[in-house]
Nucleic acid binder design. Structure first.
Lengths: 257, 257
DNA sequence: ACTTGAAAGTGACGTTACGTCATTTCGTAT
DNA sequence: ATACGAAATGACGTAACGTCACTTTCAAGT
């Protein structure tokens, strides 16, 4: 028979919690002193361990109470349903994670105008996803849909997506410069390099994508991150300067972001 | 200017929630009728969308309030810390998932005696993990530690682990039979087949593991799922019968679970 | 036996984001 | 003017305790 303070020290459960468990009838001390102080037995300690364990599994105290009272509780069923619940929660958090990455990356592109980025994302998230998908599936054939999955994504955590985002951010910050300036031309060159790495020989897809990009309404329907008209035009001018100056081996144009 | 009921219909947010947002000062209706009925403006609707979006990101209402009030809020920092928080939560749920699978699989082995399985798992989970690892690292060399990772695990969701668990469960249910019976011999044969698939040529490791298995205290220190002495002896007898009857090409013995 | 300080006891309120009554007032149609 | 739906306010409940505030009990020292 040990005192509540001892139990607290041994189990790392606070005294308040032990009293609360008593209060809700989850774990009542086996006996009490005549003055009313709780005295816990070895049995109580074991039950307490079970409670801690099940709480660690994510169960609520009410459920634990029922489980431990009912001697013929159906463990397999409740464990499996708890597993399903935990997996659903993980999925939910996973999609939150994607959204957060998307938002963080958007802000990296906008470079300071945070509210604008948030507004854009809200626009995107308010469209429902099924409509997006069917529209995409009408626009592209199977092979192109496979290519679509390899595009950099705003919600991506891969270095490839992150570099595209950084490049677009740089473009936006150099909009006041001459599109023929060395800085801008370097960014364009890097974009084309990356585009070739992933999409060499897929000129048709790239050109189609770029045409869609230039139409704000089409881009929106595809769920593409909105890029302002003047940014796109700036990129196109810079691209043409780049191609006419020294490089003219390829017919592809545009960017894949 | 629209009424609260309209807002509720448009945004799928309940009237109660809108009033609550007003109460905590998160979203106060722009104006009111002289009787005190709330009237929401377009501005309010936009703010409401932002609130919904941020709540979807997992923020608390208090945080959202601060974010939207403070015009120069540092979004990148708070978004990144929120991302870290979400990822930690995912990790936590991931380890809960492992524990649940472990428990479900244990019960599958014990075949009915649920409380026993839970007791065993509590024993295991009460040992702290770092102590387990250092003991293991003292017992095995590098190559054997790599082999260790390929052992079936109680928390596993792979078909391989699941089959080992099923096999052990069958053994336990046939303990009353003769170890020479066809059923038991078939189970043993299947175990040896699986063992050969994964661990062919690693006889030294297998034998060492089996010796450790036969010592309850060593097994416990290694964090191996406890198997009763009589079950192990039964398996060994069945194994010897199997080898002496017709198969004697290999010197390996024991099971890897 | 008496004192005293530590520890135990019992409320009660706060936390989060609302749901769910109960009661009263407002707006509008007839 | 009246009736009726809709809006407002207020209060209580949720889960699992943390944190006071105040009182009583325990165990040791004198």
């Amino acid at each position: 028979m040990i005192h509540i303070h001892e139990v607290a020290k041994l189990t790392k459960i606070t005294v308040r919690t032990l009293r609360y468990y008593d209060q809700i009838g989850l774990l009542t001390a086996t006996s009490k002193t005549e003055g009313g102080h709780r005295l816990y037995s070895e049995e109580d300690m074991k039950k307490l361990q079970q409670i801690q364990f099940l709480k660690g599994m994510g169960y609520r105290l009410q459920d634990i109470k029922e489980m431990l009272c009912d001697a013929k509780w159906n463990w397999p069923i409740s464990l499996k349903s708890q597993l399903v619940y935990i997996m659903e929660e993980q999925e939910r958090l996973g999609s939150i994670e994607s959204s957060l990455r998307e938002l963080i990356n958007s802000i990296a592109i906008e470079g300071g105008d945070d509210h604008l980025a948030i507004q854009k994302l809200i626009q995107l998230s308010n469209q429902n996803k099924t409509k997006l998908r069917t529209f995409r599936e009408n626009m592209f054939n199977d092979k192109q849909l496979e290519l679509w999955t390899r595009l950099p994504k705003m919600k991506g955590k891969d270095p490839d997506s992150l570099e595209w985002i950084a490049l677009l951010g740089q473009i936006k910050r150099h909009m006041k410069d001459d599109p023929a300036s060395l800085r801008v031309q370097n960014i364009i060159r890097r974009m084309l390099e990356k585009q070739m790495e992933e999409f060499e020989g897929e000129d048709e897809f790239i050109n189609k994508l770029w045409e869609l990009r230039k139409s704000p309404s089409q881009s929106e329907k595809l769920g593409l991150y909105p890029i302002e008209q003047e940014v796109l035009e700036f990129m196109e001018r810079a691209y043409e300067i780049y191609m006419s100056s020294e490089h003219n081996g390829s017919t592809q144009q545009g960017g894949v972001l």
